[in-house]
Design a protein around this nucleic acid. Structure first.
Length: 445
RNA sequence: UCCGGUGUAACUCAAUGGCAGAGUGAGCGGCUGUUAACCGCUAAGUUGUAGGUUCGAGUCCUACCACCGGAGCCA
């Protein structure tokens, strides 16, 4: 929606200024924009000021002969990240990247920076930029990434909403581990301890028995001391869960879901993908169906390409890349050995040593973006699996209850938002995919 | 947690154990079409911290701190 097009009889105030991204509707008009200085070039009697307002950037031109000496002096004294309001006339100009520029009539400074802005057209290292993350997000690349992230989140929610999934908020503070595998962040909780959630899934299963189809969407936390380009300690997951779904339906859902997200990004973020210099040909090929291979087949492929793997091993990052590089779209790998997977995964009735689970590997080496599968729905079997994983059944009584009262086959998966953003934006590290990344060695700012 | 690496001007980096340097950015000056503009000038340092070796340490040694890359674990 375009807020400046709304009329006041709809109860919305009319903006007195325009957003830069709607400048093409105001050719040859007098407009005002409000924003920040990103760049200044001066040429004696001519000053070029580049302004951003979060929506776009535009070049504003101040010619000494067109303005009062006071305004020219103001323009001459501007520094990077000065916030200001500029009024002037919009004119078409091929010399401007946007196709339009503003011939400045007046400038009103809102705030002049107290010091030199740390980020300027010079080389910066990754450590420095992260230390300045609160300022770094103002730069055009970061803005593009965060806009694409917003599209991905919206597309994920739209798809699920449209397909009968109900948003179901699961707790952040939990009494115990969901899976008992990963390391959890512990926090004081009155007279006892609580743990930050590592997944909403178990609660989603309860939701699916109540609402049929649900999804949780929120932050999750892993205290694993992982130091790689694919890991954050705090990351966001969207986790759909559906009653009466089996593994095949789950995989179908996952591939349609991901294909929709990709298509929405291609449709809505052409400009951002261009800013990021993303090769969109590699995204345009993402159409369903996605290839599906079993874990057995994956092992055969790895063996035949000279990799030393034995049946029963989980697939590491390198192995995943070997598999995913064979395809031009995401690939689903299903039926892993039960020992590789969490206790709640249902075993294949045809083959008890593999789980009815699936992972989705993104192309171009971006790794696992989805993990999911069909859940164990039999009370006794689940109880035995909890014990087999050396977990205390007591805190899982409520979860076991779901198998005591009208248990049904059900399945779901979790999609990692940051890995999806990294993949679609073509980034080599997930730390740029979230406004304020939390890593093992970085919790500031 | 393990393996490897880095720490010098605001930023990115040089400097054989022997005078602390460059580029970029910033400031000042010049220029009416620039777009990481260009040209000239200027300022800018407790070499991560603590200790040690040495006539002398940015450089060698020890410890610590911070960060970077990778592995394992996982999304």
């Amino acid at each position: 929606m375009n807020i400046s097009e709304l009329s006041d009889n709809k109860g919305v105030f009319i903006m007195q200024y325009i957003r830069i991204d709607e400048i093409n509707k105001h050719a040859d008009e007098e407009v005002q924009i409000k924003g920040w200085v990103t760049h200044i070039r001066s040429s004696g009697k001519l000053i070029f000021i580049e302004i951003r307002d979060g929506s776009e950037r535009v070049q504003c031109v101040v010619y000494k002969g067109d303005v009062t000496p006071e305004i020219f002096e103001t323009a001459d004294g501007l520094t990077i990240e000065t916030s200001l309001m500029i009024s002037g006339s919009v004119r078409k100009d091929t010399r401007s990247k946007l196709g339009y520029e503003i011939g400045v009539k007046s400038i009103q400074v809102v705030h002049q920076p107290k010091d030199e802005f740390p980020i300027s057209p010079k080389e910066h290292g990754v450590a420095f930029l992260h230390e300045q993350r609160h300022l770094w997000i103002r730069s055009s690349r970061q803005v593009a990434i965060l806009r694409i992230r917003a599209t991905i989140v919206k597309a994920a929610r739209d798809f699920l909403d449209r397909n009968g999934f109900i948003l179901f908020d699961t707790p952040i503070l939990t009494p115990t581990s969901c899976e008992g595998t990963s390391t959890l962040f512990e926090t004081p909780y009155f007279s006892r301890s609580a743990y930050l959630t590592q997944s909403g899934q178990l609660y989603d299963e309860a939701g699916a028995m109540a609402l049929g189809r649900v999804y949780s969407f929120g932050p999750t936390f892993r205290a694993e001391k992982s130091k790689t380009r694919r890991h954050l300690t705090e990351f966001w997951m969207v986790e759909p869960e559906a009653a009466f779904f089996d593994l095949d339906m789950d995989m179908k859902l996952a591939e349609e879901f991901v294909a929709y997200i990709v298509s929405e990004v291609l449709k809505n973020n052409t400009y951002e993908l261009e800013t990021l210099e993303r090769n969109i040909v590699k995204l345009e090929t993402i159409e369903t169906p996605f290839p599906r291979i079993s874990y057995d087949e994956a092992i055969d492929i790895l063996k035949s390409t000279g990799h030393e793997v034995i049946w029963g091993d989980d697939l590491g990052g390198d192995e995943e890349t070997v598999i995913s590089n064979r395809y031009d779209r995401p690939v689903l790998i299903h039926r892993y050995p039960v020992e590789c997977k969490a206790f709640y995964m249902k075993s294949d009735p045809q083959r008890s040593n593999v789980s009815l689970c699936c992972d989705m590997l993104a192309p171009e080496g971006y790794g696992e973006i989805i993990g999911g599968g069909q859940r164990e729905d039999d009370y006794e079997t689940l109880l035995n699996k909890i014990k087999h994983h050396k977990l205390d059944p007591e805190p899982f009584q409520w979860y076991l209850d779901l198998r005591r009262y009208g248990s049904v086959p059900h399945a779901g998966f979790g999609l990692g938002i940051e890995r999806t953003v990294a993949w679609l934006c073509g980034l080599n590290h997930v730390r740029e995919t979230i406004p304020f990344p939390r890593l093992m060695d970085r919790i500031h700012p």
